[in-house]
């Protein structure tokens, strides 16, 4: 698509660097995946605390990455997604699916913490494809559940990033934002908080 730049460049337009840093560090040491909790907590802080989606609007590192790759580098086709992907039922359905998978990840962490399950040193892509990732973890460096949570969170982050990049390539740069579970949740919070 024809590159469309932001009108005024701000420091937060460079937050895409954090995304690249996050995935690169997780490749070498999976414990860095814990930093992903920042991206989970900040949207809620903005939504509950201020009733805004400022995180999505400005500080989302993934949004900035997709904007740069799709809009600035020009990798995006710039086509509008099919209406069924943009529909409310898909958006809320994807949120429900995502939350179920997040819950399952937490349950697996619990099972490892209670000794029922062994630590799996793999990154699971698309909730089904197990990719060996053992080089990124030194056994015994932390409690097994802490490592399990890191592997789980990294899997979730990487899977959603890949989906976001595929959507960016095929459609508009920030197409992921139209289905992003965090965006959906924070918009719901904002609407409720501001009594829409």
């Amino acid at each position: 698509m024809k590159p469309i730049q932001p009108i005024k460049k701000n420091w937060y337009h460079y937050l895409w660097i954090w995304s690249v840093f996050y995935f690169a560090m997780g490749f070498f040491n999976i414990l860095f995946a814990w930093l992903g909790l920042i991206s989970f907590c900040l949207p809620f802080i903005f939504a509950f605390g201020y009733g805004t989606k400022d995180f999505c609007n400005r500080y989302c590192d993934r949004g900035q990455l997709l904007r740069v790759l799709g809009g600035q580098v020009g990798l995006s086709k710039g086509v509008l997604m099919p209406s069924w992907i943009r529909s409310s039922w898909f958006r809320y359905g994807f949120l429900a699916f995502f939350m179920t998978m997040f819950g399952q990840m937490l349950y697996t962490t619990y099972l490892v913490a209670s000794g029922i399950k062994e630590l799996s040193e793999t990154v699971t892509l698309f909730w089904s494809i197990r990719v060996p990732w053992e080089w990124a973890y030194t056994a015994g460096s932390v409690e097994p559940w802490q490592a399990q949570f890191a592997f789980g969170l990294y899997s979730l982050m990487l899977t959603s990033a890949i989906i976001g990049i595929v959507l960016m390539l095929l459609y508009k740069p920030r197409s992921w934002c139209a289905v992003c579970p965090m965006g959906t949740m924070t918009q719901m919070i904002c609407k409720l908080r501001n009594k829409e």
């Binding site: 469309i4 730049q5 932001p6 009108i7 989606k53 999505c56 609007n57 400005r58 949004g63 904007r67 943009r86 529909s87 409310s88 958006r91 740069p173 920030r174 934002c177 139209a178 992003c180 965006g183 959906t184 918009q187 904002c190």
Partner: peptide
């Protein structure tokens, strides 16, 4: 308002 997702892309590029 029905399908808007409040991602802020429009705000960013509006001259």
């Amino acid at each position: 308002r029905d399908i808007y997702v409040a991602c802020g892309s429009c705000e960013d590029v509006c001259p």
